[in-house]
């Protein structure tokens, strides 16, 4: 039976065995490897921006892109996990700022040792994620609504707690600023924060691709009911995703202190939308179940390239906003198209 050849007997079956048109072949390839399109966009934008202004490709401007991208890139890892389950997290920025302000305030003027302050930040992210995940699973509210609510709640708590005041780097223990330390890799200048983000991508990428947990995340986002019937504890997977995303936001708070050189409750106001933008441009489907952190990394880099490239080209920053907006629309349209692939 193994070598059985499918013979076309009816007209419809012959139609099914027809040769694919070039467009369909592209659709199939993109379906199998969704990271190809953001990768192509990244390569093309690199080439174009280098042509416009050769300084774009110099190690110091590329190093700057990496440092600029690190924070959003890290948040986008958590956002990817949540979007893979067909959810969305609007509270990303609020959780990060709250975690950052809590650890900075506690550590200010040698209050709490640096390591404990970092752990408190991560613990706050975990608690916030557990709250989001519990509201999504227990009360059964859509993630959009839950995180819209917690966005306001966490933002308000952050502002009330800090009375709107920042904590400067000089008042913080060295460990909290460590993520901003730079070191040379060849002619590139890399920060410790960038390295942390790279490790984050490797770890989460590995877990998604190679563990049962990763399979379950995809299955839950793909078809919740099918996952449940296959014996997956859907609620447990969902809560784990929100908790891990929260831990990532807590870690990102530490990276943000190093990057900004201060802890300010008004930092990263666009984090919610920018993290979603990176995920979507990276080819992860907002409908859940398909995508990967590799695409998100490419998506975050694309946004960074556009910021740096267009500013070096000397055009108004609004053109970057315009270009990124168009990219999002194209990415969503491409996702819709490749999802319609059939045998």
């Amino acid at each position: 039976m193994l070598g059985q050849v499918v013979t076309a007997t009816t007209a419809a079956e012959q139609f099914a065995l027809r040769r694919r048109s070039p467009v369909q072949r592209v659709q199939h390839v993109l379906h199998s490897y969704p990271a190809i399109s953001p990768f192509l966009v990244l390569v093309i934008s690199f080439a174009v921006f280098t042509m416009i202004n050769p300084r774009f490709a110099q190690p110091n401007s590329l190093s700057l892109v990496l440092q600029q991208v690190a924070v959003i890139g890290a948040l986008a890892v958590g956002q990817t996990l949540i979007i893979l389950t067909a959810g969305i997290d609007l509270s990303v920025g609020a959780v990060t700022i709250l975690a950052m302000m809590l650890s900075a305030k506690l550590a200010e003027g040698n209050g709490l040792p640096g390591i404990l302050a970092v752990l408190v930040g991560i613990a706050l992210g975990v608690a916030a994620g557990a709250l989001n995940g519990t509201l999504v699973t227990r009360i059964g509210l859509p993630p959009f609504i839950v995180t819209l609510g917690t966005l306001s709640v966490f933002t308000a708590i952050g502002l009330l707690y800090t009375r709107g005041q920042s904590v400067q780097a000089v008042d913080l223990p060295a460990l909290l600023n460590w993520t901003g330390e730079t070191f040379a890799v060849g002619r590139f200048r890399i920060t410790a924060g960038v390295v942390l983000v790279a490790v984050l991508y490797v770890v989460v990428g590995f877990a998604l691709a190679n563990t049962a947990w990763g399979r379950h995340v995809y299955a839950v986002g793909d078809d919740k009911e099918a996952a449940r019937l296959a014996g997956i504890r859907v609620d447990r997977v969902l809560v784990s995703v929100y908790v891990i995303a929260g831990a990532i936001y807590g870690l990102t708070a530490w990276i943000l202190i190093g990057r900004a050189g201060a802890a300010s409750p008004n930092a990263i106001t666009d984090a919610n939308l920018e993290s979603i933008t990176a995920v979507v441009i990276g080819g992860t489907s907002l409908f859940g179940g398909r995508g990967a952190v590799l695409g998100t990394l490419l998506g975050a880099l694309i946004v960074g390239f556009f910021r740096s490239g267009l500013s070096l080209a000397g055009v108004d920053d609004q053109y970057r906003v315009l270009a990124v907006g168009l990219l999002v629309l194209v990415a969503v349209a491409v996702d819709q198209w490749i999802r319609r692939v059939r045998a």
Partner: peptide, 8 residues
């Protein structure tokens, strides 16, 4: 309802 995850 088949109970398979289509993207997997």
């Amino acid at each position: 309802t088949l109970a398979v995850a289509p993207a997997l």
